[in-house]
Computed example of a mutant assay.
Amino acid sequence: MTKAGYHAQTVLMDDLTDVRRRYKIPADLAACHTATIGGYVIEGHVPAADVTTLLRQRPKALGLSVPGMPLGSPGMEPANGEVEGYFTLLLLGEGRRRIFARH
């Protein structure tokens, strides 16, 4: 995110359950990182380009999620270059979601 021009403030927490509940992140989409920006929540290893697109388009949504920790997602690039396909999901509320980007 820093390379893309974003400046993150890090807050270390032992348990993100209350944070995810506050931002209405479905349990099946929970990942290892939760952030907020521009009124949206960002859950997991979401590419900076997807965040930029979200902020430019401003859809009516809660935010974005990349569930799990897919190989090749930001911060999960293995030394051998192995990657797996994954989706960034747009969180629409009430557990609804749709594909926002394919990687």
Results as ranks from 00 to 15, higher is better:
residue 93 G to W: 11
residue 89 L to Y: 14
residue 32 C to V: 03
residue 95 G to E: 08
residue 19 V to K: 01
residue 97 R to H: 11
residue 65 S to W: 06
residue 41 V to E: 01
residue 41 V to N: 03
residue 2 T to P: 01
residue 101 A to Y: 00
residue 9 Q to M: 02
residue 99 I to H: 00
residue 29 L to V: 00
residue 22 R to I: 02
residue 3 K to L: 14
residue 49 A to M: 09
residue 25 I to N: 03
residue 74 P to M: 04
residue 44 G to N: 00
residue 10 T to L: 13
residue 67 P to H: 04
residue 58 R to M: 12
residue 12 L to T: 15
residue 40 Y to K: 09
residue 2 T to W: 03
residue 46 V to S: 08
residue 74 P to T: 09
residue 64 L to T: 05
residue 7 H to F: 05
residue 11 V to C: 03
residue 67 P to E: 12
residue 72 G to Q: 10
residue 60 K to I: 11
residue 75 G to P: 09
residue 18 D to A: 15
residue 1 M to E: 15
residue 14 D to C: 03
residue 6 Y to W: 15
residue 65 S to Q: 10
residue 93 G to S: 08
residue 80 N to R: 12
residue 69 M to Y: 01
residue 75 G to Y: 07
residue 70 P to Y: 02
residue 95 G to Y: 06
residue 28 D to W: 11
residue 25 I to K: 02
residue 63 G to N: 02
residue 36 T to F: 00
residue 12 L to M: 14
residue 76 M to C: 08
residue 27 A to W: 01
residue 24 K to V: 00
residue 86 Y to S: 04
residue 53 T to H: 12
residue 25 I to D: 06
residue 23 Y to G: 05
residue 65 S to K: 06
residue 95 G to D: 11
residue 34 T to I: 04
residue 83 V to P: 02
residue 10 T to S: 05
residue 5 G to K: 07
residue 23 Y to F: 15
residue 44 G to Q: 01
residue 14 D to F: 02
residue 49 A to F: 03
residue 78 P to S: 14
residue 90 L to S: 07
residue 74 P to G: 05
residue 98 R to N: 07
residue 19 V to H: 13
residue 35 A to G: 14
residue 19 V to A: 14
residue 45 H to T: 00
residue 91 L to D: 03
residue 72 G to K: 12
residue 34 T to L: 03
residue 45 H to M: 06
residue 26 P to Y: 08
residue 3 K to I: 07
residue 88 T to H: 11
residue 28 D to R: 13
